[in-house]
Design a protein around this nucleic acid. Structure first.
Lengths: 92, 92
DNA sequence: GGAACGATTAGATGATTTTCTAAATATCTC
DNA sequence: GAGATATTTAGAAAATCATCTAATCGTTCC
């Protein structure tokens, strides 16, 4: 993890849309993929980028793999931004 | 502008450090560049990415170009994240 | 005007990224 | 176990990106 991976993950519109899709609950890779005009392999790749960034987690249930939002990493981002907005120069 | 450019701009560690450097006031391109072990041309490129993302603005004063933080775009980012954390499915 | 300095732009190169097709893995059902 | 379904992994191609060197632009000062 780290800001590097997180921001990189968020920099792709497909991946941001995936996060949006997961707002109202976990979805399978297939359900997520059906929202996009690209192959399942490509969606799978995006899911793995999001997973490596810690933005989603996966939950295997039988034949399906459910993905769900993981919001804690986003808190780190807002924290980083807040640190940028604070004007104290002794901060990390 | 748009999230695309903003997140992409934030995804590079050099650029995030530049933003950090500008927390306590405007600096010239040269001052910024002296903090990094890369050519001035490369730093200039990073500054232009940040400028196009709306994260910094430039102010030419004579021979020097001063760069300073532009925080409003960061507010849009925190707004987007907040929207992701809200669970209402009728939101944009 | 010309030299000196601060900074950007142009063009090239190697690395990374996005996407695809094809093949592989995992699970369920018969 | 074989076939069907859900998903990922492997490998390749095109696009984008970070970085460099060299050349250019803008300003100041003599």
């Amino acid at each position: 993890m780290g800001f590097q991976e997180t921001f990189k993950a968020l920099s792709d519109p497909t991946r941001r849309e995936i996060l949006h899709l997961l707002r109202d609950g976990a979805k399978t890779a297939g359900e997520i993929g059906s929202h996009f005009d690209m192959t399942g392999a490509t969606v799978s790749h995006h899911l793995s980028v999001l997973r490596e960034a810690g933005l989603i987690s996966d939950d295997r249930r039988g034949k399906y793999i459910y993905y769900e939002l993981n919001l804690s990493v986003l808190d780190e981002i807002t924290g980083w931004i807040a640190g940028l907005k604070g004007d104290r120069s002794d901060e990390a």
